[in-house]
Nucleic acid binder design. Structure first.
Lengths: 210, 210
DNA sequence: GGTTTGACTAAGCGCTTGCTTAGAATGCCG
DNA sequence: CGGCATTCTAAGCAAGCGCTTAGTCAAACC
């Protein structure tokens, strides 16, 4: 196995449940390669080398290159989905729910920006069935944000002209972090999350001046 | 040549200056293919077929597949750059400048979402020299937004805690449009631009309630 | 009318791709 | 100890890749 990036070391801990060891190493090597070069520009030989295996070693644990992408994408969506639901049950105040959601989602995208980039950008290269499954998860997440906006608007706390469009814009903020974030960025993941949560609340809050 | 999408027809007009005819058809076919499948998943044979040429016909007009990506990326950045500069000279009021900039950039990204997707997402696959050149253009654009925020803050019209981070967030809004926009979207490009411009102003305006 | 020029293609070269096959090593269970 | 499952590799196959070569053909020029 080649030397590890900071991200890979973090994933090594976060993905302990992926067994056996070589299967996890393959998944992590695939994340790094897909993030750096894109799904199609990555060869199965790149992935195998990254995990310290021969080219054929990949197929002991995964049926295809696409399956590696699918596993990564699924785990990523499960983690962000859990995180978003946690934000909505942590409070009954829409403003507090939205603040937690944007803060935690944004800092997750920054902290795991390598994984997140794969999760957000390589989606289209999944097989049709896998893509359909993931698209459903994404629609759920979008719905979660929309519901917060609806409740907040009904309570007069928010002032939102178009709920679906605003929900999309709020998620865009967090998603787009993966396009530019790098560990050397001005803000660490937590500070960035807080900053973005402030911006999000400004975007939807009622009681603005004329 | 195969049948054209709505986007391709629009490009056919917008890129009239690309000559000869076959060179423009190749560029448009490359945009469509890169947007749909990504740079590396697109073959030069796909592009040639899309332009109604034989596989070798590509190399009469372009030296490599990468050069096609470079031309597309350069044209895209020149157009959005021109559009952003026009917004800043259209008014001396920072609020008006920011409104025009976000409105026009966002509706451009929606209207030309196919081109824009290539421009925003396939950047990393440029050669090192080409990438350096484009990165410089992007830094200029980011600087343009930062200057608007600085002036607006100095005049007390804006309330921005962290100028570079907020500029990044504002651009994220427009850039991320290319990830999800589709002609069947709820809002047409112009309405989306206006909506996003409103959100942008909310994000930075001073005079908010406690 | 002969020649040059620009746009194009048929054929294919050398290489890389995702994945398979056949078999070797290792550890576990009786 | 023998048998079996698991994990792995060396070798390689068929297909597809970006790009080149050698040459055709029509229009432009002298």
């Amino acid at each position: 196995m080649t030397r590890m990036t900071a991200d890979a070391r973090e994933l090594e801990q976060a993905w302990q449940e992926v067994q056996p060891d070589a299967a996890r190493r393959l998944l992590i090597a695939a994340v790094e390669a897909f993030a750096a070069r894109g799904f199609h520009a990555t060869t199965t030989r790149d992935i195998a080398r990254g995990a310290g295996l021969s080219p054929a070693g990949v197929y002991v644990h995964y049926g295809s290159k696409e399956e590696l992408l699918y596993r990564i994408t699924l785990i990523g969506h499960q983690q962000t989905g859990r995180l978003m639901r946690a934000a909505t049950v942590g409070s009954s105040e829409p403003a507090e729910q939205l603040r937690s959601l944007v803060r935690d989602l944004t800092s997750w995208q920054a902290r795991f920006h390598t994984t997140a980039r794969v999760v957000e950008y390589e989606l289209h290269f999944l097989s049709e069935e896998h893509h359909t499954e993931i698209a459903a998860l994404r629609r759920e997440m979008q719905g979660l944000v929309e519901r917060i906006l609806e409740v907040g608007t009904a309570q007069g706390e928010f002032d939102v002209a178009d709920v679906p469009t605003t929900a999309l814009a709020l998620l865009s903020l967090s998603v787009d972090v993966v396009r530019w974030y790098h560990p050397s960025a001005r803000l660490n993941p937590e500070d960035l999350g807080r900053h973005y949560a402030d911006l999000a609340l400004r975007m939807v809050s009622a009681g603005r001046p004329a």
